[in-house]
Design a protein around this nucleic acid. Sequence first.
DNA 1: GAAAAAAAAGAACGATCGCTCGTTTTTTTC
DNA 2: GAAAAAAACGAGCGATCGTTCTTTTTTTTC
Lengths: 226, 226
Amino acid sequence: MTFDEFRTNRSISVEDVCRNYYSENKGKIKIKKEHVVIKNMSIIMNTTLKLSMRMGFDAMSLRDLSAETGLSMGALYSYISSKDELLALLHRYGQKTIKKNLEAMVDGITEPRKKLDTFIRSHIFLSELLREWFYFFFMETKNLGKKNRLLPMESELMTEQMCTHIIEEGQAKGVFADVRTDLTGAGIKALMQDWYLKRWKYSRRGITPDAYADFIIGFIEKSILL
Amino acid sequence: MTFDEFRTNRSISVEDVCRNYYSENKGKIKIKKEHVVIKNMSIIMNTTLKLSMRMGFDAMSLRDLSAETGLSMGALYSYISSKDELLALLHRYGQKTIKKNLEAMVDGITEPRKKLDTFIRSHIFLSELLREWFYFFFMETKNLGKKNRLLPMESELMTEQMCTHIIEEGQAKGVFADVRTDLTGAGIKALMQDWYLKRWKYSRRGITPDAYADFIIGFIEKSILL
DNA sequence: GAAAAAAAAGAACGATCGCTCGTTTTTTTC
DNA sequence: GAAAAAAACGAGCGATCGTTCTTTTTTTTC
């Protein structure tokens, strides 16, 4: 699977996140028509991610957001109830959508080596498509309310555990060496994460998602293959 | 070298950073006595790092900083000229001090495998001692002025290049395999960085700096050793 | 196409921000 | 220990923040 194949097959969009958000918050949102919510909420989410990447969520004022989205201050507050809530919902519904996608990716694959390859490759490709989301999840965790404070940690551990489980399965089947699964899982996560945290570095060097995935997978297999 | 040995041998402190800052900014600082500057500037720096880790530099108000340091608003402005400048100086003088320390660590070592081992181990140990600094360097880069915008990138590339060079030396001497040095260097950097970016994860699991260093070095050597 | 409903608009509010500056307190000097 | 220098203080400034609310505009309904 190449990145181009991945991109055309997986049609993942912000609107999925919006639809999810809308269906669970019909009561709280002042706007009645679903298609209006989806349209403007998508703009709000995308613009928030963009501005957060540029100046950080905290430094972004709602007037900045208003100017960039083309929506008035009043209009913004028809869709969100507060700035804190905007931060929280991006984390909550974004992570949820991505988790669903990640889990679907290795579904049905049993051969451990193939499974690990697919998972790593898919993760890198997905984070390439949704780079702003992944970056946001890591960088904008400080001002989450008590209710959502643990969300970033949970998602970090979830991704890591998916790696760990694949390795354990491989070890049970006698395909992978007897390495420390916890630290190996953490290492794989760190290497996958570097792709979207340091995108500027890899862009500058002209390294494609495919090349990065190939390298990382080779790197890891040297360590865990018998 | 264990972490405990490292800790006792390397007496690195904030005051070094302060002294460096003071000697280059005597003109701008309103306080005359050096020992007063060192004392209070150390408090300001440490407190800023602490509050930034807790709530983010942007969300930290100077009144927060005033309350936590015990210095009045007016007193703060006797040491710094603006909040932006505080951010910039922490990056500038912090990075400078750490760079100096990092370079000294592999000084004199010629055997490639030993050199790589020492560099990785030292980096992990140093980031353990100065965890708040390393974390700050990575997380608080958004609102750096034009003059210092490239600083974080430069330091990222510098660390990476130190890895890359060691690997190239090893390849030239026929000790290391013919791997891609750029991506391997990037990978090592990512793995070292994970230690201080996800300290909570490793703390929770009771993984010591020594254990982490051992694992990472073993992990990498599997990939690059002939 | 007029009445009703929905959505967008943007001025205004209190709170808080970074920052200043006249005053007070502390330390040094002789 | 009084005078001078250094340092700390903290109320107050204008700007900007998140948020609200009344008004205007747009869309839908019949």
